[in-house]
């Protein structure tokens, strides 16, 4: 990547003002474009979802609450013209797409976030213990994470979901967390291993600090941007698996979500019938969400790893 506009612009401005060379203001790693754009777009989506729920009738997610097969505003589909009563159209069972999106997005993101949080918490405890304490503890944790990491999450979840068809919000988040702790554990272990020999850790040992204080009070604050990037990466991973399971028709059918909507669209051959809004709108929203999470993750990586920065 080339220099960002931010730095170039300031450089030019300073030059024009003083007529002599001046160092550009100290770059703030938190102000990188990827992080900002990702956060803003994701923030807007989440705000729209929550504010929208206040103003839009949530009961429209129920079957038969709206006219069937209505296209979005301004479009025509089989003699029906889209109207503002259902701006994003409806599906073939009379569910309002806008209501589905407003209710489904926070639901899917929420499950992903909760499971990533649980996974990261386990990852922090295991990763720090393995890296800092070493020895047997390290062996056991490494064995556990390495073996379970290679189990394909989707496969196991399909089996579990077919046994428990209507898992609720937290049950689902917990199930996903089973597959979300290995990656943070491994990555954090590596970080702690390299940080363990830092001089300030030595000093804390000399000051009589117990192990858990060295781990969580001395080392962890310095890993903060790194941890947040693990959290967003984990959220993205969990949402991906969640949507995957739902698209296969195995999610809870009680709560509307983006994956279930896609599953319904596939079952009703929406693509063949030309009902593009039914599958297209949830897909676009998912793509945007994944891109935002990726941008935030990459942006935070830049904060914690100066070598990735542009200049």
């Amino acid at each position: 990547m080339k220099k960002t506009d931010f730095v170039e612009n300031t450089g030019v401005e300073v030059l024009a003002e003083d007529g002599c060379k001046k160092r550009p203001p100290k770059d703030n790693p938190w102000k990188n474009s990827r992080l900002i754009i990702g956060t803003i777009i994701l923030g807007i989506l989440i705000i729209i979802a929550f504010v929208g729920q206040l103003f839009w009738d949530k009961t429209l997610v129920n079957v038969g609450s709206s006219p069937l097969n209505l296209p979005p505003v301004g479009n025509e589909y089989r003699d029906q013209i889209g109207n503002w009563a259902h701006p994003l159209g409806t599906d073939n069972s009379g569910r309002d797409i806008l209501a589905l999106v407003l209710v489904g997005l926070p639901h899917s993101l929420g499950i992903g976030f909760v499971s990533a949080t649980i996974g990261l918490t386990i990852g922090i405890i295991f990763g720090f213990s393995a890296g800092y304490l070493g020895g047997r503890v390290d062996d056991v944790i490494r064995l556990l994470s390495d073996t379970t990491m290679n189990i394909p999450a989707l496969l196991i979840l399909i089996i579990i979901q077919s046994l428990i068809p209507n898992a609720g919000f937290f049950a689902m988040a917990l199930l996903l967390a089973v597959f979300a702790w290995q990656s943070p554990t491994r990555v954090l272990r590596a970080q702690v291993l390299s940080m363990k020999h830092a001089d300030y850790v030595k000093l804390a040992q000399l000051s009589g600090s117990p192990d858990q204080e060295i781990m969580f009070k001395e080392m962890m604050p310095n890993l903060m941007p790194f941890l947040i990037s693990q959290l967003t990466a984990g959220t993205s991973y969990s949402v991906l698996i969640l949507v995957g399971v739902e698209v296969l028709g195995l999610g809870s059918q009680k709560i509307p979500s983006l994956g279930i909507t896609l599953n319904n669209a596939i079952n009703a051959s929406a693509i063949l019938r030309g009902m593009w809004w039914w599958w297209g709108i949830p897909t676009i929203i998912l793509i945007v969400v994944f891109m935002c999470l990726l941008l935030i993750t990459v942006g935070l990586d830049e904060v914690s790893n100066p070598r990735l920065r542009d200049h």
């Binding site: 830092a198 001089d199 300030y200 000093l203 804390a204 000051s207 009589g208 600090s209 204080e213 310095n222």
Partner: peptide
């Protein structure tokens, strides 16, 4: 490198 960059200098006195 002996000071934890996250804290003020006072921190080393506090923990001791």
């Amino acid at each position: 490198s002996i000071y934890n960059p996250y804290y003020c200098v006072e921190h080393i006195f506090d923990i001791a």
